[in-house]
């Protein structure tokens, strides 16, 4: 399985990541970071769906997303 880590102190809540996720699991959370931005997140129940495609990280202007994949999870890679 794959997953993303949103660096909440870096996220500016622009939500560009939410528009490129092929499985549409990234949403705006209700949490504000110290800069007052409502950060992006993948809700717990959606986490399994992550394909590790890294689209969200590619479009993120703030290097606020890290992407992890397990060696097996080649399927979602493009």
């Amino acid at each position: 399985m794959s997953r993303i880590e949103v660096l909440e102190d870096r996220c500016k809540g622009c939500l560009l990541c939410t528009t490129v996720c092929p499985v549409q699991i990234i949403v705006q959370s209700q949490r504000f970071n110290q800069n007052g931005y409502k950060v992006a997140e993948v809700p717990e129940e959606e986490k399994e769906k992550c394909t590790g495609c890294a689209s969200c990280a590619l479009i993120c202007p703030d290097l606020a997303i890290r992407v992890y994949r397990t060696p097996k999870a080649k399927k979602g890679e493009d």
Partner: peptide
């Protein structure tokens, strides 16, 4: 077994930028 497949490149300094939300400078920098 998990591998970090997307992270900050070494040439980009680990600090928040002053850019506004959604500004593309950050993408170009990266």
């Amino acid at each position: 077994q998990e591998k970090l497949v997307f992270d900050r490149p070494e040439s980009v300094i680990d600090r928040p930028t002053h850019y506004c939300p959604g500004c593309h400078h950050g993408v170009a920098h990266r």
